[in-house]
Design a protein around this nucleic acid. Structure first.
Length: 276
DNA sequence: ATACTCCCCTGAGAGC
DNA sequence: TGCTCTCAGGGGAGTA
C-alpha cells in the first residue's frame, strides 16, 4: 500500500503528464470514492479546472487547481491509468476524468477504499483531511522535543503511534516496522516510555527509510508504469516487514509476526526488546 | 480526552 | 475442481 515515498512517486509521474491540462468532465461509477462534496457538486465543480501543480501532503496527492485542491488518497490499492475514450472501462475503474486534450485519467481501485476530496483552498487548511495532518518527515520542525510533547502522554504502543497521521504524516504499516527495527525499539513499547535517544533515533531512521524509498521509486517506477499504471507500488529492500520465520539480518535470530492495534507487525524480539 | 472496536471492500490463499 | 472461510489494511465513525 502506498506510503509517503510511493505517493510522492505517483504525484511526480502524474505531474509529468498532466501539468497545464484542464479537466473537461468526470464520470463517477462508484459514489463512495467521493468523500467531499456531494457527487453532483464534485462533477460540476471539477469542470474546466486547470491543473497548475501536483504535489503531496501526507499520503494525499494534491492537485493544485488554482482556486481549489483535488485531494486523492489511494489507500491500499488505488492507482491511475492513462487511457483514451475508446478504451472500454475496466471493472475496477471507478472515476474517469476526461482532459481537455481528450485523453483520460482513470482511477482504478480494486477494494474501493480510496477517497477523493474537492475543496476550495480557503476551506482546505481549516477542514479535514488536511487540517488533521501532522508534520512531514522532512519538516525541520520535526524534532525530538516535538515528538516528546505527543509521546509522553501516549499510553499506546509506539507502532500504533507511528501510524497516527496527526503526529508525523506519511508513515504506513510497512515502513513503521522498518523504522522501529533500525531504531532497536520493540513495537509494543508504550510511546510514553521511550527515551530521548529513542525519539532521536525514530526521527533519524524515519528520514533514512523514507528518503531511501523515494530514491528507489525514482529509479524503479518506470518498469511498472506501462504495465500496471501509475501507482508507485514498489518497495525498498525490507529488513523485517513480511519476514516472519526468516532470520534477522543483524543477529540471525527469528523474526516474528504479532498484531499491534489490529495491524500485522514484524520484528526481531532479540534486537528489539520491550522497555517497561 | 484517550483508547478501543467495527467497518468499508475484494481477491488471494488455505482448508476440505 | 470448486466451494467456503479467513485475512489484509488506512482511517473514519461510533462507543466506553
Amino acid at each position: 500500500m502506498p506510503e509517503k515515498p510511493e505517493v510522492i512517486t505517483v504525484a511526480r509521474k502524474l505531474k509529468q503528464h498532466l501539468i497545464g491540462l484542464s479537466f473537461k468532465n468526470v464520470e463517477i461509477y462508484h459514489n463512495n470514492v467521493i468523500a467531499y462534496p456531494t457527487v453532483e457538486e464534485f462533477k460540476e465543480k471539477i469542470k474546466n479546472k486547470k491543473i497548475i501543480n501536483i504535489g503531496t501532503r501526507g499520503k494525499w496527492i494534491v492537485f493544485d487547481l488554482e482556486s481549489d485542491y483535488l485531494l486523492v488518497h489511494l489507500r491500499m490499492e488505488g492507482r491511475f491509468f492513462y487511457r483514451t475514450k475508446e478504451d472500454p472501462r475496466g471493472k475496477h475503474e471507478h472515476v474517469i476524468f476526461t482532459l481537455n486534450n481528450d485523453q483520460q485519467l482513470r482511477y482504478h481501485d480494486v477494494r474501493k477504499f480510496g477517497k477523493m476530496v474537492l475543496i476550495s483552498k480557503e476551506e482546505a487548511n481549516s477542514k479535514k483531511p488536511l487540517s488533521e495532518l501532522g508534520l512531514e518527515f522532512d519538516d525541520e520542525k520535526l524534532t525530538e522535543n516535538y515528538l516528546k510533547k505527543f509521546y509522553e502522554k501516549k499510553n499506546l504502543p509506539i507502532k500504533s503511534v507511528l501510524l497516527d497521521q496527526s503526529i508525523i504524516t506519511g508513515i504506513g504499516n510497512i515502513y513503521a516496522d522498518e523504522i522501529l527495527f533500525l531504531s532497536n525499539i520493540c513495537p509494543l513499547t508504550k510511546a510514553k516510555n521511550l527515551t530521548k535517544k529513542n525519539r532521536v533515533d525514530i526521527i533519524e531512521n524515519t528520514r533514512a527509510v523514507l528518503n531511501a524509498a523515494i530514491k528507489e521509486g525514482g529509479t524503479t517506477i518506470r518498469s511498472y508504469e506501462s504495465e500496471e499504471g501509475v501507482h508507485g507500488l514498489f518497495q525498498l529492500k525490507l529488513k523485517v516487514h513480511g519476514k516472519s520465520k526468516e532470520s534477522c539480518p543483524e543477529c540471525s535470530k527469528e523474526i516474528i509476526k504479532i498484531q499491534v492495534g489490529g495491524r500485522g507487525t514484524y520484528y526481531c524480539p532479540n534486537c528489539q526488546k520491550e522497555k517497561k
